[in-house]
Design a protein around this nucleic acid. Structure first.
Lengths: 138, 138
DNA sequence: CTCATGATATCGTATTACGATATAATGAAC
DNA sequence: GTTCATTATATCGTAATACGATATCATGAG
């Protein structure tokens, strides 16, 4: 479990590339599903960010930004577009009026459900297809 | 192993969101590393696509497009930018002059090495942190 | 009350992936 | 060996979007 940095050899690069390709193809499939139901991939992930907020049915703009790994203002703009598309609603927090509760509209929830409608087989195989174990790992 | 589609419940959404967040954070870390060595994330992945080409030290534009999951023309443009940055070179295939061998310059290889210089610990933990196993999976 | 901090919002800009289209080489068919 | 569909790469204008800089407004500490 040393922390020393290593230089990858050709074969390790090939494994790393294969790993990243698998990752990218998985993401691509979900993006295509999003477009198939009429929303952008970013909107789909924003919906997931709200629905996936632990123990709540809403998320703040800052939470969404963290989830999406984008700047606050980018999250604001994405929520704007989602609202305009009828997928989300903004509700002011009552105790802290700086805070915004971003929630899903029925349409937003419905669209997310359609996006997330994945076969059990695909969910099951995810853990196996998306993995990276260097040679010789115990 | 049925193929029927399912509707995710709240808790499953939370797990899916956590999974995607982990994925995104991992990608983000590598992107930051790319920027730290002076190239764009796309250029870094293009370099990896060439170096990771199985059994070869080059890749065609079409192979890169497939690896990156972008259109052919987008790959062309990315190779343009990589060439302009001195990271790659184009070499015509001798037997099929339509084909282009995209190869790394010494600088390109050096920069890729710097990007890929990851600790063994991080490589080891990848398989564990990036995984998604639904509840009750055997 | 003042002021630093935090949360969200606005706006102009730059990057980039894309569709449509073009150029050029290959190979098959006749 | 000429024609033509196919394949590989390239060009160009456009649209989407993430960003930095900046602004607005609420909160809480002192």
């Amino acid at each position: 479990m040393s922390n020393r940095r290593v230089r990858l050899d050709k074969k390790e690069y090939e494994r790393l590339a294969a790993f990243r390709a698998t990752l990218r193809r998985f993401v691509r499939r979900t993006e295509e599903r999003a477009r198939a139901v009429g929303i952008t991939p970013q909107q789909q992930q924003a919906l997931l960010g709200v629905m996936g907020s632990p123990g709540k049915d809403w998320a703040s703009v800052a939470e969404l930004a963290d989830f999406l790994q984008v700047r606050h203002n980018s999250a604001v703009e994405l929520v704007d577009r989602c609202e305009k598309a009828g997928l989300m609603r903004r509700v002011q927090d009552e105790s802290d009026r700086r805070l915004v509760h971003v929630t899903l509209t029925p349409k937003g929830k419905s669209v997310l459900d359609q996006c997330a409608e994945v076969s059990w087989a695909e969910l099951h195989s995810l853990g196996r297809t998306i993995s990276f174990a260097p040679d010789g790992e115990e």
